[in-house]
Simulated assay, not measured.
Amino acid sequence: MVGPTRTIPEELAERYASEGWWTRETLGDLVTAGLAAAPDTGFHVHSAVRPWSGTFADVEQVARRLAAGLAERGVGPGDVVVFQLPNWMEAAAVFWASALLGAVVVPVVHFYGRKELTHILATTQPKVFIGPERFGRLVHQPDVVAGVPVVGVVGRDFDDLLAAEPMAGTLAADPAGAALIAFTSGTTRDAKGVVHSHQTLGFETRQLGRRYPADRGDWITAAPVGHFIGMLSAFLVPLMDGSPVNLLDVWDPARILQLMTERGLTFGGGAAYHVTSLLDHADWRPEHLPAMKYAGLGGAAVPVSVTRRLAGLGITVHRSYGSTEHPSITGSALTAPEDKRLCTDGAPLTGVELRLADDGEILTRGPELCLGYTDADLTASVFDADGWYHTG
């Protein structure tokens, strides 16, 4: 269930549309076009417990059969689909199927426990929940999802949801309407449900894709696909340029270094810890550097000592700043002077406006700014009538 969100000022909506930042394309349209353009692109899951290897076309077949099966069970545009899965093929199938149906997809990170999942289900009132039978400490809990009409468990009965024939095309949805709810944890309250539209997600996908180096190679995605950036990097950005998907379901520096040498895969960044854990691992060798040409850093504090260390190894560092609410606020270009790339989070990105309040609070607005929260009171407390997001 997605309730009312904030009212976007008319002049902003008109400007975003006239600039081409907001289009009439839905998430289903984006997925359909991307899959059609690169059906033979590789899709690989490098997992010790559920490895998988195939192509975009293979995953699309599963996604379209799932979409047809869910449609037979009454799922359609505007309905909510929650999934809590590791970085597995089935996560992509659920995400793409939801987009094709015009449903509102809710990815949940696999490390959320019973309390968080109960809160998310109560908040979103989904028609569908899909999770694993078991993954590490994550275990299927029938009582938690008992109120959800359609439940699928990967490793048990997920395939029962697949129709014999795949769904053709996509179902129509409102491009300005809700497409995704991303839950982000707070330290003093329940996880916040951040609502994004087809338009905000579409622009963010294009914004992020433009920032990826053209010669990045076959990147490894180890960020959880239940997390906003992990989801974008695995399921949407590759559809823009036909780049292969390589998923890892646990953060394992030794395995990543092995994939670099044996499979020719590359790594492009994350939080500072992710890069330093590779460099500090006993298996790391200078021979790994060609697979670490770039380090896009963000998501947590980025110590200058780390960026200077990477630069000293010949790694091109570029930093960024954003949040689940406003994913890409600032970023440093690959061509920016080195001191700017190493020591700052860059400049405002395309379409982004920034203001500083009298008390120093950062205010932002732009085409990828979310619609608000599932909590109307929280929305009212951080978004003003002129469309500014008060970051706190």
Rank of each mutant, 00 (worst) to 15 (best):
V2F: 00
P9H: 00
P9W: 00
E10G: 10
S18P: 06
E19V: 02
T26H: 05
T26Y: 00
T26Q: 02
L27T: 05
L35G: 01
A36F: 13
D40Y: 07
H44V: 11
V45T: 11
S47T: 12
W52P: 10
T55I: 13
T55M: 13
F56W: 07
A63D: 06
R64Y: 02
A67L: 00
V81P: 01
A91S: 08
A92T: 07
A93Q: 13
F95R: 06
A97D: 08
A97Q: 01
L101D: 06
G102M: 10
R114S: 08
R114M: 14
T118V: 14
A122F: 08
V128P: 03
D143E: 13
P149D: 00
D174S: 04
D174P: 00
P175K: 05
G177L: 09
A178Q: 01
G186R: 09
D190C: 06
H198D: 12
R206Y: 10
L208Y: 15
R211N: 13
G217N: 02
T221E: 14
A223C: 14
A223F: 12
P224V: 00
H227T: 06
I229Q: 15
V237E: 14
M240W: 00
V245N: 01
L247K: 08
I256S: 04
E262K: 09
L279N: 04
G296R: 15
R309Y: 11
L310S: 06
G312P: 08
I315P: 04
T316K: 13
R319L: 09
S320P: 07
Y321E: 14
T330E: 05
L349Y: 06
L349D: 00
E353K: 14
L354I: 13
L354V: 05
L354D: 07
E368H: 15
G372T: 06
Y373N: 04
Y373W: 04
T379D: 05
D384N: 09
G387H: 05
Y389Q: 03
H390Y: 11
G392C: 07
G392A: 15
